[in-house]
Nucleic acid binder design. Structure first.
Lengths: 336, 336
DNA sequence: TCCTAAAATGTAAACGTTTAGATTTTATTC
DNA sequence: GAATAAAATCTAAACGTTTACATTTTAGGA
């Protein structure tokens, strides 16, 4: 098996120096048309493909951004990712994606590996908002954009959704439909989204003079199983809530499954609103009212922020987008 | 801002040569404990992280595998991906993921970029099974594993599901429940999975002496919208089918939505089986009977095959796993 | 203490690019 | 046709590792 052709081989075949080949490869101009054609032909003939590692060594850039998500199986992230990828492609960047399974140790590994590989920037939904393990990026001068979860004590641009507002509106809607015994199934409260959603819930109750009831505040972990379990626990209460708010898509799934298994009649005996629009929302009967957010846009904006930071060398101020979620009213929270 | 520390800087600080530092970094042994400690301390002090590009240049390997999928928004792929990643991590490999949106042009770009970056292997669900655009990988000596869709005229290991069998069993089940007017909504027939599923459908009808009816064979494209449209078209037929088989998860979603909108009563007026188990399957009423396949395992096996090929230098024979799908009988195809 | 083998460490050359700066070629003007 | 400016091309030095091979140090025995 002959060895892979390098720029050297191309230069030899085209009878020019490697410098000229490099100029052609990078479209820098200043090369006679005839020479260029000769080089292009040689490239084609040899099947030459430039070696990114060597290039990176000289240029100290990879045109790559690393994306870190906590759970690739949560459909939220592939959609955000699609938004990131689309914008990245437009700007000539490639993306590399890794999932941490919400493990900080894993996240540290990935970050280290990304640095080794010389990513030009990082977009992250961190597994742990205390930023110590991300400082290393800052030290290396690699720009960071936080998506969906902010990062404490770190100068990172951020793209969030107004979680509190979304939940506030959802719970207010439930109240306006006559509910007073409203439960919430929370995510891990050390994450901002989970915490903010709980806060919105409490504020809504408060603003409408309803006492928060600790029994109705269930601690979940953003996984389907905890939605299921939470719903069952609520069902077993002496005084069941008449409405449930679920803090994310996966848990909503668990909630609905539990209701079916318990024969707890959705929209009839119990109302429901979930955070994030999901496939099943319009399929179950009654259709689910949800707090919906622009997931694709979230990704697009994240890349845009990162791109600015990667291109502009001057210090930009820290920027923060907070997108408004939208309450999509369907049929799962009728007056009971 | 001081420049990033390199192996040189570490060597200087630890008062050794770069060769010794390299040996420590790579855990090759043959270094006195005391020296090693000194080096480790220096590494820590400087925050040194090794430069993968330089390493790749020498070693000509990146410990990276590239994964190419046609549609990252289809939940099938993130799950396969999770399987790949898990096994890859175990073996010290990293994965980079890109999505083609079923575009061959995009796929070519990605492949080229992967080669530039020196991936050690590629796992792909190709957008076009005619392999011309993948030959370049073979030329470069980069091993390829095909997942879910095989690649024609290319020596690539393959991990498939027995699509024909899965569909055959599903349709046979429908027949055994008394159905004769059974429709199928196909995927793009130039892909093997779509084609095989159609084949299984036809064979099942044939084996049970039922004439295939062209009106009941709908051409879809694996997207939700085509499931929706196909179902509506079937509904508008003078002689409606009594059962529908949907060739993938996304189209199943569309089918169920259409049925609801048309008020075409699932399990009552029309039976249904879909390929691939999905979130909604156990949520709609009646619960969906589905053909289920081990998605995570698919990914695990794919990486395993790739890993063998990356490690073993000798020529291995072409290998092919064909996993059996399983018919999960629930309630959506009662006798009508 | 000296000798020797083994262990530890060092030297220097490559890997394939990019890019200043030097050199050659071409085009323009008189 | 010579002088000059501009354009095209070339030379050579980096970039940060790994590693074969050379050299030095250490330890153990006589």
């Amino acid at each position: 098996m002959e060895t892979k052709p390098n720029i050297q081989a191309v230069a030899r075949l085209a009878n020019v120096s490697i410098a000229t080949v490099s100029r052609v490869i990078n479209g820098q101009g200043g090369v006679r048309k005839k020479t260029e054609d000769r080089i292009l032909k040689a490239i084609d003939e040899l099947g030459y493909i430039r070696n990114a590692a060597a290039r990176t060594m000289k240029k100290k850039e990879t045109k790559t951004v690393g994306v870190i998500v906590p759970d690739i199986k949560n459909p939220f992230f592939p959609i955000v990712m699609a938004g990131i990828e689309q914008k990245a492609r437009e700007k000539g960047y490639f993306t590399i994606l890794s999932s941490t399974n919400e493990s900080q140790a894993m996240e540290e590994n990935i970050v280290k590996n990304f640095i080794e590989r010389g990513v030009d920037g990082v977009i992250i939904t961190t597994a742990n908002e205390n930023s110590d393990h991300l400082k290393v990026l800052q030290v290396q001068g690699i720009p960071i954009v936080a998506v969906d979860r902010s990062i404490k004590q770190l100068e990172a641009d951020t793209v969030l959704v107004d979680n509190e507002k979304g939940t506030y509106e959802a719970v207010s809607h439930l109240i306006s439909e006559g509910h007073e015994k409203i439960a919430i199934i929370c995510g891990p409260l050390e994450t901002t989204p989970a915490y903010r959603r709980l806060k919105g819930y409490k504020r809504a109750l408060n603003d409408h003079n309803i006492m928060a009831d600790e029994r109705y505040i269930i601690k979940g972990n953003f996984q389907e199983s905890s939605g299921y379990k939470g719903t069952r626990d609520l069902f077993l209460l002496d005084e069941r809530p008449t409405a449930i708010f679920s803090s994310n898509n996966l848990m909503s799934l668990g909630c609905i499954k539990a209701m079916q298994d318990l024969n707890w009649k959705l929209g009839n005996e119990v109302s429901f609103i979930g955070f994030d629009d999901i496939d099943i929302a319009t399929l179950v009967n009654p259709k689910l009212t949800v707090v919906s957010r622009p997931m694709n846009l979230l990704g697009e904006l994240a890349f845009q922020l990162l791109h600015e930071r990667m291109s502009v060398k001057d210090d930009l101020p820290k920027r923060e987008y907070i997108l408004s979620p939208e309450l999509k009213i369907r049929d799962s929270c009728r007056l009971i």
